[in-house]
Design a binder for these strands. Sequence first.
DNA 1: CACCACATTGACAACGCAGTCAAGGAGGGC
DNA 2: GCCCTCCTTGACTGCGTTGTCAATGTGGTG
Lengths: 346, 346
Amino acid sequence: MPRSRGNSVVMVDVAREAGVSQKTVSRVINHAPHVRAEVRDRVLAVIDQLGYRPNVAARALVNQQRRTHVLGVIAVGLPLFGPANRVFSLEQAAREQGYELALASLPDMDPAGIRKAIDGLLARGVEGIIFEVPNHLVSVDESVFRGVPIATSVGRIPGIRQQVVIDTFQAEMGCLATEHLLELGHETVFHVAGPEEWDASRERRQGWSMALAAAGRQQPDVLQGDWSARSGYALGQRLAARPEVTAIFAANDSQAMGVIRALTEAGRGVPGDVSVVGNDDVPEAEFLMVPLTTLRSDQQAISERVLSGLVALIEDRDPDAPGPPIARELVIRSSTGPPPRRPSGL
Amino acid sequence: MPRSRGNSVVMVDVAREAGVSQKTVSRVINHAPHVRAEVRDRVLAVIDQLGYRPNVAARALVNQQRRTHVLGVIAVGLPLFGPANRVFSLEQAAREQGYELALASLPDMDPAGIRKAIDGLLARGVEGIIFEVPNHLVSVDESVFRGVPIATSVGRIPGIRQQVVIDTFQAEMGCLATEHLLELGHETVFHVAGPEEWDASRERRQGWSMALAAAGRQQPDVLQGDWSARSGYALGQRLAARPEVTAIFAANDSQAMGVIRALTEAGRGVPGDVSVVGNDDVPEAEFLMVPLTTLRSDQQAISERVLSGLVALIEDRDPDAPGPPIARELVIRSSTGPPPRRPSGL
DNA sequence: CACCACATTGACAACGCAGTCAAGGAGGGC
DNA sequence: GCCCTCCTTGACTGCGTTGTCAATGTGGTG
């Protein structure tokens, strides 16, 4: 019976050993004033000796879910580079601000699953929720949040009051990519999009669309993928068959890789015949056989702002304090260049 | 003052509304027997109507940290594909078994950081810890675990009793890759390794070494990288300069990508002049310009076994129950082939 | 009809901790 | 030297839940 009373060292044990009352131990633990230095040291020594650890459950209970210093994260698509990286940088940012993260990872955006995840997080006493669900229109009723503030980097979720939204400039990314290709002299730019239900995908597409419109170019039909290299490959095969295609903006680097593979396979060189831009700047992008031109944004800054916004909301401060600027840039490598000369005059 | 008493619906509220005692509500919640169906339904209706949610803190408190159904995960290197994928599949496996995960993500293997992470997890009342720290010899004293069982897929951590270890056959992976290249006719196989301090890296290297020894081949010096494509590229450049290199086993797919880039850049074709094998089978591997021959193992099965082993330990059952077999296989694509003909006779 | 067994329900205690309030002691001003 | 103040400390209580045990009701058996 191993779990008999394993770590049963509780405050009273420390108190008895140190010859003080339980309350005094509590005071020492919480750095409360009015404890003689000598007593404090003695108590601390006993704590160390006995290996005492406060029981969070009791603490949370008495504190009436006031300060658990735990923030919840609801993440979808963790195997993807973007979300995984986001969670990682959030964790770092949280640690810096003295918070811990409770992660609920979901395979998809099923509303029932999301509701259950929120319930679970709330049950664990999180003070706020970082809602990394890729679609801000997913149907969650305000009531499921029970007044706990939330932060998101996708878009304002309708009907939720306690909410801070950090703009990640996805549309601008699409714009930057498209402008770069147009500046190189391409007639127009084709787009291999991510899944329609992801905000980031839709916004990047809008940016692409706006840039084309601003330049007065015709807007080709969009090819819709699912972030995967596989989908990029399949869509790339279709584009490779169309001679008028000379420039492609893929919504992420994985898709861009698949597109490049398909083009190469079909005998169309990159960037000689077709230019390709990705998005994310995955660590491998620089070291592919044809180094990928792509878009990068400062994930660490985004996470810091998401986090400080949420903490501000929790602590009743102004959630819109500036925070670090979010850098974003086009990284030009080898997969983009001027369009090929027209085969026959003009 | 938004955080006044947000979700103050507690059991007594439900009890009062339903006209029963608080204890009866408790029974309904916990599916305890001896509650009349009619009463149960009435209570459930009130719970739904009032939006009551049990307070975990109180629950955990009274249960003496016995059953929180939360498992801790200590993960290092989350931005890497392997660890991120592992956490994801662990989360799924946990959900299936009725557990939740509390994640502590660490940037490195600093022992102080690990100790702090364990403390934090323990403080949150986890019943077990999945120790996804890539080196099993990292110095953690048994006492910091306070009797909580741990599971790991790296290797038995010395001095810890309550422990279940799942073998992930890393050495076999190295073996398979090397044998494949030897069978193709290569004289020997060069190895671009991962960081020395990662168990997985050392084991893959051992497998490579054993396969070479078994075939009676000479064992080239190892080039040590850090999992990144960048390091693969740097090391690949050195290998590209040596004409005797015709086969390379890279410890993961990212490094393999970098190696292939370096080789190509130096004018050595893959697989025409040099064959390259990776490890992990990242989703992009199939869709690179030269589709990567690589090794794949069944992450889902590994996670299931890690989890069920840990749960068995927690529930005092046999932790070595079989569980699903862990499939691992060589995926042969285009980056490997027979060695080139010797330039001059023999 | 008496009695027993068992289903159903509730009153009360306890979990580990921090808040409240009061008691004791030391120090300073008159 | 007296009184007031403030520092230090401890006894007691309550947070929301479940375990224990007793009380009540219900039905079946002899």
